[in-house]
Design a protein around this nucleic acid. Structure first.
Lengths: 358, 358
DNA sequence: GGGGCGCTTGACATCGATGTCACGTGGTGG
DNA sequence: CCACCACGTGACATCGATGTCAAGCGCCCC
């Protein structure tokens, strides 16, 4: 704006101005600058104006860290978010929702990708603790989160999302995995299916187990015996899912419907169905929305999660704690939405039988 | 681990231990604790051991902010990332790549979503400046980034990604928008198409203009006059793209191929093609990979960007600057990859003509 | 006219760490 | 036997801000 700042000379790092510099320029004490910058009352209007002008001229930006250090509460106005990967679409949407709430309150968010590595979880927490974040939103990876108790004891709140933690008692926000899996199966049974395959993620992942259990529970409730051969776990990418799906569909007594319980697995299953030309004969319901899953033919019926709501609720819980809420930890369950698009409504052989029997 | 830490009593916030506490417990001076914690030499082994034990017992975590404040360089080991939205798949992958490089060097990343709001860009930069980030990776939104010069002058480096900044001269890492658009058009022309429609994002977005210009340049080079009626800009979501595409395809002299230059626009175009049952007759090449775009029928031929490489290069450039590189700013252009999947290889009417005429 | 009040203001200690420097100790060499 | 050095160690100032507190000043009221 002024004098030489636009000259093409080799610029050398100018020292960053501090409150002292502003105070000197404005001819006031440093504390008065502090008052003006923080909008405290009891500063004469013309003094405030002089200070503001000096601050603007020097392009002064307060150093939050210095302030946080001195200030009583020591808040850094920063929270930490631990997710599987910031590149994962589900996690990214959760992240965005949390960021929205945080920004509104002047908070910044550190996001860290764990890639399902238990060691990374510990490292990430330690790194954030050294940065004195005011709170954590964590997707638990390790089997045991009890090592986090010390942070809670020191007054740093924590909210777990997506998976239940173990060893600590904190607010959690999770998807209704079990019930939603039941709903998916119920939907397929209603279309007349009896032989329904389950394609699941790694068994060590809690949500994968919950979805499988929901699947088994609904089958049991409906008096439809589960065939162990059709219950597959430990799939984690699309190629293995494609291979397994092809194998299942070429069994002597193949499934007439598939409940695929994870994103990439769904992609693999669809590809297998397409390869075998069976996509219009075998029903499919997928857990987790598939990006542009409504461009595929047939369009994919899904159990859509609500990452936006999960993120928002988690952030709201965290800030409630930061605002002093000391009530007992809450377990929030976020419902899913069954999005009927076609693939899940392909009728099964039981359709006629179901109509005939009662 | 020890004594009462597992008792179910109502825990009250225990004060966070400082170096002084560790020093007292270990019976040494605070400076010695500092030495041990930072691995400085010249500490007697048994003293170091005593300090480490005390630190572990108190679960001491150093306060990085206090250290940064005192330390000469004042580095916070934190960088800021400004993107359209952390939930945008492209930005999320860039973010992940940057995070990978940053984590390796003990850096944490603040990511901020701008949602293409110029005011948000300024706000975000200011918020990060107050937190004294060591560097910025920015997706420019405003028309003019010259207001950022002061940060550069103060020794905070910056790398711009995805779009070229204006008003400042910094390292940039961008996709080869112009050339890739030409390649897409060339590909369609090679299939015999002459009437090729262009579907673009908001004209005020630089990459949208570059892609359109590439499209026009290639048409001109190939002696194929561009029809203004087929050059559409200012699309930003799938519904408007669907509407426009339907309109174009029902023109008296409709295009035989479409080059859609943004993600959501592509989704809209595909939907329109499917609604009109034209997806196997009208060729389509899309800029930017469509998630599971290989499940659609026909599978979508795309110009795939390389967000991972963009993020990695941007981070490497930023850290090179932080390591003292004072060379002139570099403009890195990241190539795209034409992924042939089917939709772009639907032959056009010129195919025969092209073969007939020499 | 003086005590007291309210509004402004700045000196100073402090937050938790690190840089500087000086001190104590034991060994080495002249 | 003493000067000197290297090593280990801690006292103290300091980074950039804010909380505390007291002082200066004008004004009101008795």
């Amino acid at each position: 704006m002024t004098s030489m700042s636009s000259a093409p000379t080799p610029r050398q790092a100018s020292r960053r101005p501090t409150m002292r510099d502003v105070a000197r320029l404005a001819g006031v004490g440093i504390k008065t600058v502090s008052r003006v910058v923080n909008g405290e009352p009891d500063v004469a209007p013309e003094t405030a104006e002089r200070v503001r002008k000096a601050a603007a001229e020097l392009q002064y930006e307060p150093n939050m860290h210095a302030g946080n250090l001195r200030r009583g509460d020591g808040r850094t106005h920063t929270i930490g978010l631990l997710v599987s990967s910031v590149a994962n679409p589900f996690a990214a949407q959760v992240h965005r929702a949390i960021e929205r709430v945080a920004t509104e309150r002047g908070y910044a968010v550190f996001a860290t990708s764990l890639e399902d590595d238990p060691a990374a979880e510990r490292r990430a927490i330690a790194a954030l603790a050294r940065r004195r974040v005011d709170g954590y939103v964590v997707t638990p990876v390790r089997d045991d989160q009890s090592y986090l108790q010390v942070h809670l004891d020191r007054g740093t709140p924590m909210v777990c999302i997506d998976r239940e933690p173990s060893g600590i008692d904190v607010d959690t926000v999770v998807t209704a995995n079990h019930d939603s899996a039941r709903e998916a199966v119920r939907h397929l049974i209603a279309q007349g299916h009896r032989r329904i395959a389950f394609l699941g993620d790694l068994e060590r992942i809690q949500t994968a187990r919950l979805r499988r259990d929901g699947y088994l529970a609904e089958l049991a409730d409906q008096g439809t015996p589960a065939d162990p051969a059709l219950t597959v776990l430990d799939l984690h990418d699309d190629t293995s899912a494609t291979a397994i799906t092809r194998r299942l569909l070429t069994l002597p007594d193949p499934p007439t419907a598939i409940f695929s319980s994870q994103n990439l697995v769904t992609v693999g299953a669809i590809r297998a169905l397409q390869q075998l030309g069976a996509e219009h004969d075998v029903a499919l319901v997928a857990f987790d929305d598939v990006e542009s899953g409504d461009l595929v033919s047939p369009r994919v019926t899904v159990i859509a999660q609500d990452p936006d709501r999960i993120g928002r609720l988690a952030a709201e819980r965290l800030f409630a704690r930061l605002d002093g809420d000391v009530g007992p930890p809450r377990q929030l369950v976020v419902p899913t939405r069954l999005v009927v698009r076609g693939s899940g409504e392909i009728p099964g052989p039981g359709r006629a039988a179901a109509a005939a029997s009662p």
